[in-house]
Amino acid sequence: MAYRIVHYINQFYAGIGGEEKADYQPEIREGVVGPGMALKAAFKGEAEIVATVICGDSYFASNMDEASAKILGMMKEYKPDAFIAGPAFNAGRYGTACGAMCDAVSKAFGIPVISGMYPENPGVEMYRKSAWIIETPDSAAGMRKAVPAMAKLALKLLKGESVGKPSEEGYIERGIRKNMFYEKLAAERCVDMFTAKIKGEPFETEYVMPVFDRVDPQPAVKDIKHAVIALVTSGGICPKGNPDHIEASSASKFGEYDITGVNDLTSEKYCTAHGGYDATYADQDADRVLPVDVMRDLEREGAIGKLHNKFYTTVGNGTAVANAKKFGAEIANRLVADGVTAVILTST
């Protein structure tokens, strides 16, 4: 049986009209429309386009949540095995819509999602982690090149075959690290690369060093004597027994613990859940990681307004940046809601 594909295109490729029709509301039609013909041909019967979703670019851009929810609803009865959007070439709104729909479909149905775009299309930067985006030229003149590559990758994903490197398959690098077994030991690969480097021969690193983004500093705290200061730590300090089972490494959660009336973190009541450092000292006296004792003194002396009555903790050990980001954002929201002025974050 052929795999079932739902294809997404905009009003222009559906032949409805150009910019003047860009507010066209989403609809779904059975079978192939517009560029779907070329896709169909490229599938050579292995997959079939069961339905085509059409949506105006402006409509999608100004009603993203609503439009994508509506489209997901329409698609459901077609039971797709994969979702293909575009190709959008260098059309910005179309590319963004294709990316957003790929992201939504992947989350809702867990099926492969494929699009095609020119590398500078803004949809690439926004959605390259969510979708497989085949690299295309900047205009529809590249349709003939884009479509077979999209179809080929879609079939590979549908069959559960492993996907090669971006340069081999023609998709835009997603920035997702995937394990594989190489021919040689990592040690031999490293000495190979080393040899090439010292001889001045070309070599390709296996991992390009990351560049981290920046956030502007917040203004200073003006009135510390009335400020509410919260303590947050990535050092895993938690009530003894780790009641929330925060993982020793690669944490999937953070803990929120009330310290109303707690003046000192004693070894009877607190410990660390962290698996990345020698925990002896933190287990003996958790104030060494989370300075509740000193903060209470400062509070009593009036040096600060108040120590916030909850502290937040997670384990920074081997925890993905994406998770750490999520925890940080959620903790910040809760702290703002509780009227906290500023934060001391301790790390081990």
Binding site: F212, D213, R214, V215, D216, P217, Q218, P219, A220, V221, V232, S234, T314, G316, A324, K325, F327, G328, A329, I331, A332, N333, L335, V336, V340, T341, A342, V343, I344, L345, T346, S347, T348
Partner: peptide, 29 residues
Amino acid sequence: MVKEIERKLPVVHMCTIVPISQTVGANRI
């Protein structure tokens, strides 16, 4: 984590391995 908090509130990062904090992008260290 420190950067996400910094988007909302002033935060100071107390840590031992300052170079990591600098690379990752804390502001007050």
